[in-house]
Design a protein around this nucleic acid. Structure first.
Length: 422
RNA sequence: GGUGAGGUGGCUGAGUGGUCGAAAGCAGCGCUUUGCUAAAGCGCCGUACCCCCAAAAGGGUACCGAGGGUUCGAAUCCCUCCCUCACCGCCA
């Protein structure tokens, strides 16, 4: 959520930055400002009346103690009741409308974010490793089918399309990856492991900005009004919602494994064969809460922590920076890490590392106490460290041997319990 | 799910209709005194918003789990909900 003061003081700046995303939000900004001034006018008048009422009420108390008649003053107070009621309703209506509108405004891209309209405009920031030289690259579907690692048919039978069942060595590899990732980030990179609930309340989704805009992407348990998490970002970032953290607690760094549930409404059939886009997938997520002064540096180290995964596994990847038109709703700056898929001859996004600045913190009222004792909004960041399904694809396709077996990177041998899949 | 108890400021904890944003204690900050690694005295010490304003200061409103209601006036009375604890029931 954007700062109402910023909108008030620099509306044109806000409009211009929002326009860089490729759409105009001028009308929304203008309506927010209209609500803001309407609210304040009503509030000022209301508070004046309340002050009068309080004064007279105290007077009544005093007079009654002296056994004096107060009927006249009581009538005076009563005569204002209707106006006060109306003003209170007016004020809260403006406030609610203003909040609803603010929740639909995306974050402002940082000034350094490259201008662009779509994913094709994202500049490549760096490349690590090289495309492996494979004689007969194969698609992960072919590999997994032959080695009986994944059962898509039965996944669809029990849960519907875009659900998969990992089987045998396939299931074991997934578990090995989860353990490897959590150990790496907690032991080497200083993150604290958390295992959060997999369903959350509406407020949590609003807090991290999945709602209200992306309501059609969420699985919802209607009877209990709970939502399946689309990413661990939601429960983990919301852990400290409505808290005021001591400065000494920052930065907070969490690593969490969770399954992620996404309806993916409207994206069926679009380069989505196999594991690439599922309704349920595993992910290890990295979340940081820090001070505004440190968030830029924390984004760099967060991205480096995620990249380390691919480096250790020896997987070729590149890092792109999202341009203004491709930037996520709540993000002020984002790096995507894309791993090379020999089977698809394409880069697959395995991590998206974003700095939300105070956008999420405002929504969830997450603050810290500054050195001067003043409460300030935290900055929040997150990035996948990494998504498992696409990492899995890259591992199978990159490790493919001429004899059809899969050689695994040394870092996974102990976790997996073998050096290769055959 | 049932019954009972309870949710007050960073913490402990008073407060059952009027001068309570809320006693007292602890913690914290500042000053003073004595001195020695502590003690005593005094003062300050919640949050959000509105008005004023260059800013500071100042004035005001709201907040005692959340939301409604009664009343001239609610931390205090009534209703609904949430959460915590205890016991019971059910259950991986």
């Amino acid at each position: 959520m954007l700062d109402i003061r910023l909108l008030r003081e620099q509306p044109d700046f806000v409009k211009t930055r929002l326009q860089s995303r490729g759409a105009s939000f001028d009308a929304t900004v203008d309506e927010v400002l209209a609500c803001d001034s309407g609210r304040r006018a009503a509030e000022t008048r209301l508070q004046t009346l309340q002050a009068e009422r309080n004064k007279l009420s105290r007077e009544i108390g005093r007079l009654r103690a002296q056994k004096q008649d107060t009927a006249e003053i009581e009538a005076q107070v009563k005569s204002k009741a209707a106006e006060m009621q109306a003003l209170a309703e007016e004020s809260s209506a403006f406030e609610a409308r203003q909040r609803d509108l603010l929740l639909t405004l995306p974050n402002l891209p940082q000034s350094t974010v490259p201008e662009g309209r779509e994913a094709a405009d994202n500049p490549v920031v760096r490349v690590w490793g090289e495309k492996p030289a494979l004689e007969n690259p194969q698609d992960h579907l072919a590999i997994a089918g032959r080695l009986k690692l994944l059962d898509f048919d039965r996944g669809a039978k029990i849960s519907g399309s875009a659900f998969v069942c990992y089987t045998g060595q396939g299931a074991r590899l997934e578990r090995a990856l989860v353990n490897f990732l959590l150990d790496l980030h907690t032991r080497e990179h200083g993150y604290t492991e958390v295992l959060p609930p997999f369903v959350v309340k509406l407020e949590s989704l609003i807090g991290t900005a999945q709602l209200p805009k992306f309501a059609d992407q969420q699985y919802r348990c209607a009877d209990d009004d709970l939502y399946l998490i689309p990413t661990a970002e939601v429960p983990v970032t919301n852990l400290h919602r409505e808290e005021i953290l001591p400065l000494s607690a920052l930065p907070i760094k969490y690593a969490a494994y969770t399954p992620c549930f996404r309806r993916e409404a409207g994206s069926a059939g679009l380069g989505t064969r196999g594991l690439i886009r599922m309704h349920q997938f595993d992910k290890v997520e990295l979340v940081k809460v820090c001070t505004p002064e440190n968030s830029a540096a924390e984004l760099e180290s967060l991205t480096a922590d995620a990249e380390k995964v691919l480096q250790i596994l020896g997987l070729h990847y590149r890092v792109v920076e999202l341009c203004t038109g491709d930037l996520g709703f709540g993000s002020a700056r984002t790096y995507d890490i894309e791993v090379w898929s020999p089977g698809q001859q394409a880069y697959l996004e395995v991590s998206s590392c974003s700095n939300f600045e105070d956008f999420q913190a405002r929504r969830m009222n997450l603050r810290f106490k500054g050195e001067d004792g003043k409460n300030r909004f935290c900055h929040t960041l997150n990035g996948s460290g990494t998504a498992l399904a696409r990492l899995y694809v890259a591992l199978l396709e990159t490790g493919l041997q001429p004899d059809g077996t899969i050689v695994l990177p040394p870092a996974l041998h102990d976790y997996f319990g073998a050096t290769k899949i055959s």
